[in-house]
Design a protein around this nucleic acid. Structure first.
Length: 271
DNA sequence: AGACGTACCTGACCGC
DNA sequence: TGCGGTCAGGTACGTC
């Protein structure tokens, strides 16, 4: 799922429901997702007051009084909120917690998600090595980061160490918007192209956040409603359909890149 | 350094 | 209806 806009939407949904409250109870229906949960996971979280719910890249960081509770939604994760009387345990509800009369369920069919608890969130390796947020990185830094690698632009942008939060959908969208080939070596990008690319990345992410993210299969918001940005895809999932650039008569192509589908217009996005 | 394959999982969909 | 193949918003390995 869940790229930056979806994770941001989840955090915004959780924040008003969790901040300032105390986690009453946490139930583990299994003791591992992608990785094992740490041994004292349950004890660390239950009874803790929530200070903040924030996003970093595609991670959700719940700051508790004594610990940081870190979650990743993987490919198919979602978090849903219920009134206690309405909650029915569903298949793949792996971790469930209660606050007042509310129940929150972390549901993840594929179990590519992750959850852990640490003393300090900034000591958690994936966050420690993560690149800057797209909304915070400067044009100069973004350009420097891109020209530091010979990998294709698509691969470089998916690398969370180069820049945080981008995934397959929004990279395809931003590259199309920028008339840049996903196969172009990142170190050959011009400064003005990098500048435009960053502007387009921020624009596509901002619009997606405004739409509550993209709901394809599993992803839903905390209130169980769907995001709507999938209606505005320009290239993603549009193989064989007309390129939406009005001056272009080509169709959208799909090619495999690093084991993932890359959607692009072969005419508008030449190397 | 980086390309590439593999692994972790379930479920939806398609063609036969 | 069933079966096998393919694909899916991600990340972390190992090997060459």
């Amino acid at each position: 799922m869940p790229e930056l806009p979806e994770v941001e939407t989840v955090c915004r949904g959780l924040e008003p429901l969790m901040v300032g409250k105390t986690i009453k109870n946490i139930i583990l229906n299994r003791n591992r997702l992608r990785n094992d949960l740490p041994p004292m996971f349950k004890e660390c979280i239950s009874g803790q007051k929530v200070y903040s719910v924030k996003r970093r890249g595609k991670y959700i960081v719940v700051q508790l009084a004594d610990y940081a509770w870190i979650m990743h939604l993987g490919m198919s994760g979602k978090i849903s909120n219920f009134e206690k009387s309405q909650y029915i345990n569903e298949k793949h509800d792996h971790v469930v917690w209660e606050i007042d009369e509310m129940v929150f369920a972390f549901n993840d069919p594929r179990r590519f998600g992750d959850m852990t608890v640490v003393n300090n969130y900034y000591d958690y390796k994936p966050l420690k090595i993560m690149g800057p947020e797209p909304f915070e990185v400067t044009e100069e830094d973004f350009f420097e980061r891109l020209i530091s690698t010979k990998r294709p632009l698509k691969t470089a942008l998916l690398d969370q160490v180069i820049v945080a939060g981008l995934g397959n959908i929004y990279v395809c969208e931003a590259l199309w918007q920028s008339n840049l080939s996903p196969f172009k070596a990142a170190n050959t990008i011009l400064e003005k192209q990098a500048k435009m690319l960053l502007i387009n990345i921020k624009e596509v992410l901002a619009k997606a956040i405004e739409a509550g993210g993209s709901s394809l299969r599993d992803y839903k918001k905390v209130d169980n409603s769907k995001g709507s940005f999938q209606k505005y895809f320009q290239v993603y999932n549009r193989e064989g359909q007309k390129c939406l650039n009005k001056k272009c008569s080509s169709n959208v192509s799909r090619e495999n890149q690093g084991g993932r589908s890359t959607y692009f217009c072969p005419t508008c996005q030449k190397i």
